[in-house]
Simulated assay, not measured.
Amino acid sequence: MGIFTNTYDLPYYAVIFASERTEGEKGYGIMAAKMVELASKQKGFLGVESARDTQLGITISYWKTLDDITAWKENAVHQIAQERGKKEWYSRFGLRVCKVERDYFFEV
């Protein structure tokens, strides 16, 4: 697998999380790695892609169903990370849930 996650049976869902960080690490990197590891063990998880520069971070997680996304949102450990994010790590963030009906990947 390269930079992009694999493509999956259509349709599937993408959760797009965009964020601006506060100053300082405050355990963010460790928790982010834990969340990817935990999410990867959840029912319906397909993959994740993430990028961050000095101002903006975007993480896209892919799921089989909306129910799988809801279960992940309600995961107790994930809820702890969400609360820490609101209090310590993010100055702004937004979340979008999208249904993927087509996808295309090309190599040149």
Score class of each variant (00 low, 15 high):
41 K>V: 01
99 K>P: 00
14 A>M: 14
83 E>V: 14
92 R>E: 02
11 P>T: 03
36 V>E: 15
97 V>K: 07
55 Q>W: 01
97 V>R: 04
104 Y>D: 08
11 P>E: 03
43 K>Q: 11
39 A>R: 05
23 E>D: 15
72 W>N: 05
63 W>C: 01
9 D>I: 07
31 M>E: 15
29 G>I: 13
7 T>R: 06
98 C>W: 06
56 L>V: 05
27 G>R: 14
66 L>D: 00
13 Y>L: 06
47 G>A: 04
22 T>M: 14
42 Q>T: 10
101 E>A: 02
69 I>T: 01
38 L>V: 15
47 G>C: 07
66 L>K: 00
3 I>H: 03
52 R>Y: 02
84 R>P: 04
77 V>A: 07
2 G>V: 12
74 E>T: 05
13 Y>S: 07
93 F>Y: 11
105 F>S: 12
61 S>Q: 02
11 P>S: 04
59 T>M: 07
64 K>M: 02
67 D>W: 00
4 F>G: 06
55 Q>L: 07
81 A>R: 01
75 N>K: 06
25 E>K: 15
26 K>C: 10
100 V>C: 13
60 I>M: 09
41 K>R: 14
7 T>A: 10
86 K>R: 09
38 L>Y: 14
12 Y>M: 08
83 E>S: 10
101 E>T: 06
24 G>Y: 14
63 W>A: 01
27 G>Y: 15
65 T>Q: 00
28 Y>E: 11
103 D>F: 08
36 V>N: 15
25 E>T: 13
13 Y>G: 10
84 R>C: 11
3 I>G: 07
61 S>T: 13
36 V>Y: 14
102 R>A: 12
100 V>N: 11
57 G>S: 05
20 E>A: 10
90 Y>P: 04
60 I>F: 01
57 G>H: 01
82 Q>S: 09
47 G>K: 03
103 D>R: 08
73 K>Q: 07
67 D>R: 04
5 T>F: 02
103 D>W: 08
58 I>F: 07
76 A>E: 11
91 S>W: 04
63 W>Q: 00
2 G>C: 10
29 G>C: 08
86 K>T: 12
25 E>R: 14
84 R>S: 06
62 Y>F: 13
1 M>R: 02
45 F>L: 09
18 A>R: 13
75 N>D: 13
76 A>P: 15
53 D>H: 00
90 Y>H: 03
74 E>S: 03
83 E>N: 10
47 G>E: 05
25 E>P: 02
57 G>P: 05
59 T>F: 03
26 K>V: 11
82 Q>R: 05
83 E>L: 11
69 I>N: 04
65 T>C: 02
64 K>F: 00
65 T>H: 00
104 Y>G: 07
63 W>H: 01
80 I>R: 05
97 V>H: 06
8 Y>I: 01
67 D>L: 00
88 E>D: 11
99 K>C: 08
26 K>D: 15
105 F>M: 12
89 W>H: 05
30 I>L: 15
75 N>Y: 08
18 A>S: 14
86 K>M: 13
38 L>R: 15
49 E>I: 06
48 V>W: 02
1 M>C: 09
24 G>P: 15
45 F>R: 01
53 D>E: 03
87 K>R: 10
26 K>M: 14
87 K>Q: 12
88 E>T: 09
107 E>T: 09
30 I>C: 11
53 D>P: 01
28 Y>S: 10
86 K>L: 15
43 K>D: 13
94 G>L: 05
43 K>Y: 03
99 K>E: 09
20 E>T: 12
50 S>H: 13
